[in-house]
Simulated assay, not measured.
Amino acid sequence: MVNKAEIIGRVTIIVVVFVGAITMLIPFIWMISTSLKVDSEVFTFPPTWIPDVIQWENYIEALNVANFGKIFFNSTYVAVVTTILALLLNSMAGYAFAKFEFWGRNVIFILLLATMMIPFQITMIPIYILFREIDLINSYTGLIAPNIATAFGIFMMRQFMQGIPNALLDAARIDGASEWRIFFQIALPLMRAPLAALGIFTFMFSWNNYFLPLVIITDESLKTLPLLISSLSAGLYVQSWPLVMAAATIATLPNIILFFFAQRYFIEGMALTGIK
């Protein structure tokens, strides 16, 4: 039988979670509300959550600003290719660190984890100089290459890979399976949940990445959505906050849709990775 103190504890947790969820939703709700207003209503006081006249035209105008369709394609292409390559390379590296014995494995892994403490602001100038020397400035490759293998992704895959029984892999080796076949037909199918979690993290990071395109891209035709929204907010193309918020809302939708369809695998993957 549930006692009174336990009921109070559960109710308190529910209330705290609900208040936290509402607090985190407020900026998103305000963004949508502002995207449907006229310019004169944006800075009214007290602020209005529901516009007097809903301006759906703001979204149409946002799509017509600064070749929005091409820029949306750039972000989609870079994020999708980065995610696919990151899932492949990070899982392969994680598998190697978890299941293979080689000289210096632990030292290399510790050094790899240490790179997580280095902020991008320190490495962006060396990256720019390197990419300029190998002619990757103003290219999709320059936007994709730095994020296809990360210390976080390798660590996450290794943690889960350590939970796969070695006996299962040894049985496949005894049956004559090659290491590539063991990886692709045995290890990877067991990693669907953590791969989904890593895929969401990678896609969202690539989609929202601002500093790397800012350093690598100067060509207007290769700009990504974060650069476009930054330019809109600075008044480079238009002087309208509703249009900025409309563009930001459109840019947010792919992340929301991705998480909506993959949330079960994401939550399962995060839970399993933590346990492993």
Rank of each mutant, 00 (worst) to 15 (best):
E61T: 15
V244A: 03
L36M: 11
I118K: 06
L212W: 05
A234M: 08
I182N: 03
N90L: 01
I257Q: 02
N3W: 09
Y95A: 05
M1F: 14
P189R: 10
N106L: 13
T252G: 08
Y77G: 09
A251P: 01
T252P: 04
P226G: 08
P165F: 10
I71L: 03
T252L: 12
I60N: 13
G176V: 08
F102Y: 15
A234G: 06
I229W: 00
N138Y: 12
P165A: 12
I14L: 13
N166I: 08
L136N: 05
V80Y: 05
A149Q: 10
P213S: 08
L198S: 02
N90I: 04
S240E: 01
P47A: 10
M117A: 15
I256E: 08
V16S: 03
N74M: 08
I110R: 15
K99V: 15
T123V: 07
F201W: 13
Q239N: 10
I256P: 04
R10N: 11
M24R: 10
L36Q: 03
I216S: 00
R132K: 12
L236R: 13
F97H: 07
Y95N: 12
L87Q: 01
I32Q: 03
A172F: 03
I174Y: 11
Y59Q: 07
F184I: 12
T252H: 06
R264I: 01
P189K: 13
A247E: 01
F259E: 04
I122P: 05
P254L: 10
I71W: 08
F131C: 09
N67L: 04
I7T: 07
L36T: 02
T141I: 10
V65N: 00
L232R: 01
E6C: 07
G153F: 02
S139V: 13
Y210G: 05
R173V: 08
L188K: 00
S230P: 01
I267T: 12
A66Y: 02
I84T: 10
N147M: 15
F160E: 00
F155T: 07
L111N: 14
F184T: 11
V65T: 08
S233L: 09
A86E: 01
L253C: 03
W30T: 05
L25I: 06
A234F: 08
T273M: 05
Y128M: 09
L88G: 06
A66P: 01
L168C: 10
E101V: 11
Q263V: 04
I148A: 04
G104K: 10
K99G: 11
S33W: 02
T249L: 06
I256V: 15
Y59W: 12
I22W: 06
P146C: 14
E179K: 12
M245P: 06
S221M: 06
A251T: 09
R192S: 15
N58L: 09
L227M: 15
E220V: 15
R181D: 12
